[in-house]
Design a binder for these strands. Sequence first.
DNA 1: GCCAACGTTGGC
DNA 2: GCCAACGTTGGC
Length: 154
Amino acid sequence: MPNFWLMKSEPDEASIDDLAAAPQQTLPWTGVRNYQARNFMRDGMQPGDGVLFYHSSCPQPGVAGIARIVGNVAPDETQFDPKSPYFDPKSSRAAPRWLQIDVKLERKTRLLALAEMRGAPELATMRVLQRGNRLSITPVTPQEWAAVLRRLGA
DNA sequence: GCCAACGTTGGC
DNA sequence: GCCAACGTTGGC
């Protein structure tokens, strides 16, 4: 029984086109530095899970494609790299604090803009639309998943 | 650039 | 353990 997730990425860092251009159309999802989001990765994510790939902090925020979780969680390599903006001096290889997981593109979609999502009654329950939500990873219910795909014309 | 909202830090 | 101060997120 697969789960569904919405994962935010700033297109300046990793856009849907970057994912499409990556080897195997797969990128390691690194840089999660929030415990709640990490716990979703650690406790909830499984290979095969569906992902709504969301562009945030950009002129056109919204869902830009469908992806899939592949592989399993592993220590996020960027936390050990002093040159990385995601370096965490309080973490160690013995006790890694942050996790990464591989995400593979399923298909690019039309942009389902945040404004459209906000106007869609069937999407009103989505965590990403709730007031004050800042989590970069949020669970999506099967109903919400189906509603998004329907709206994307799938 | 602004600012609301939230998470984290650290002194006590 | 409390909570003020600070930092970050992210839409607008």
